[in-house]
Each structure stands twice: as C-alpha cells, then as structure tokens.
C-alpha cells in the first residue's frame, strides 16, 4: 500500500534521511522505532510531502506521490496526525473535526462525528469546548479523530503515546487496535516499545536517517542483542 523508496530528505542543508526505504502492506500496523532524532518524524513528514524528499520516491497504492502538495496527498487517502497534535486552539472540538472532514471515499470506512465520539468517548463530553482547553490526552484523541474525518485508508501517527497519562495510553492503544480491526492501515512512530508491541506486529527501526531493521517483533525478539543495540536509550 505504501512504499518509501530510497528517499533523501533535508532541512536546509542538514541531510536527515539517507536512502531510507520502508513499506507497509494493506491492513498492517507498523511501528517506526528509533532513538530521539533518528528521523521518525521526518519520515512521516516526507511521506506526507510536508518535507519534500530531494530524491527517491514515495508510492501510495502504486502511484508516485512525491512532490505533491500535502492536501492532494491527504485527499489520496493518507491521514497524518502530527507529533505536536496541532489542534486549532480557537476552534471547538466539533469545528476541529469539521476542518478534517472530506467527502466519502470508495473502499474506506466513512467516519461521522458520532462514530468518532464512540471511538473516543472522552471527546463526546467536550464537543463544545475549545481545542486549547483540552488536556494533552484529549488533544491527542481529537487530533486522531480530526484526521479520521478525512476517511483515510492509511494513517500516519506520530508518537500517539507521547506525554499522555498511562490510563489514557491504554485507551489510545485500544482505539488503534479497533481501527486496525476495521481494516485501517497504520504507520506509527513510537518511543514507547510497550505501546508499540501492544498495537503492532511489525517494526521498522531507524537510526540516523536510515532503516536498520524491518520485520516482525517476533524476529526482532529472537536477537535481543541486536534489538537493544538500536533501541536502548
């Protein structure tokens, strides 16, 4: 479904992603792992074309989307949930959802506000509150819900568990599993290995902008030395 092929991404002159490749097949939940600064966020932004790779290709459902404006990528069915959530603070919860709304797309689930409030019951009570008045966890849920309003077929989640209370993390994990069971493809970046295992079966490990490992968690655990070399902090 999603193929990243040898991309090189830069911030100005800083070369951040080096010939990075990864792929995600339909229905998979893949965890993008790596230390701070490994390039996880940049990878997701490069897929979304918020950072345009200088070379290499990003293919989505077989189409080369490299260099597309971000709104076109979104309309093709890629949903992006940024690391810092980027809720519209002045807008109410309902209005935030409205910004994300896109027409129904063939082949993917069509989300309604009510369905999202079922997925994230906490949001339902706060629907008239302004974005900036929500807690960190609620903002994270809102950010995901807002992106789901675009009815994506593949979701890019940047550190959904970051800075959230443990209880809420469990809710979040349950929600992601629920999404997976509904057939949504997910690529999520994580620092929290425990969380990543709970929701995904596949891992991609990044280090300094290149892929070090790509495969199942089971295979990764078979070589603990290798695993800890790349993941221990």
């Amino acid at each position: 479904m999603l193929d990243v092929m040898q991309i090189n991404s830069f911030y100005g002159k800083a070369h951040v992603l080096r010939d990075l490749s990864l792929s995600v097949t339909t229905g998979q939940v893949v965890a993008l792992l790596g230390r701070n600064g490994a390039g996880k966020t940049t990878t997701l932004k490069s897929i979304m074309q918020l950072v345009v790779p200088r070379s290499g290709q990003v293919r989505f459902n077989g189409t080369d989307i490299t260099g597309w404006p971000a709104h076109r990528v979104a309309r093709a069915g890629l949903g992006y949930v940024p690391e810092d959530r980027r809720i519209f603070g002045d807008l109410s919860v309902l209005e935030n959802l409205e910004v994300g709304r896109q027409p129904p797309r063939q082949g993917t689930a069509t989300w309604s506000q009510d369905a999202l409030f079922d997925l994230f019951p906490n949001l339902a009570e706060r629907r008239r509150n302004r974005g900036r008045d929500l807690s960190g966890g609620e903002q994270q849920m809102l950010s995901i819900a807002r992106t789901l309003m675009g009815n994506p077929s593949c979701l890019l989640l940047d550190e959904p568990s970051e800075g959230i209370a443990p209880v809420i993390i469990e809710d979040m994990a349950r929600a992601i599993v629920q999404l997976r069971d509904q057939g949504l493809t997910v690529l999520l970046s994580e620092q929290n290995l425990h969380f990543a295992r709970a929701v995904s079966s596949h891992a991609v490990i990044l280090d300094r902008g290149t892929t070090r490992y790509s495969g199942s968690f089971a295979d990764l655990d078979a070589d603990p030395e290798f695993r800890d070399a790349w993941l221990s902090v």
């Binding site: 709104h71 979104a74 992006y80 896109q102």
Partner: peptide, 9 residues
Amino acid sequence: EMVGALGVN
C-alpha cells in the same frame, strides 16, 4: 500547514 495536511486546498 495543518489545514493543508488535512486535505484542504
């Protein structure tokens, strides 16, 4: 930018 990433031209 976020508005764009949500599919708005």
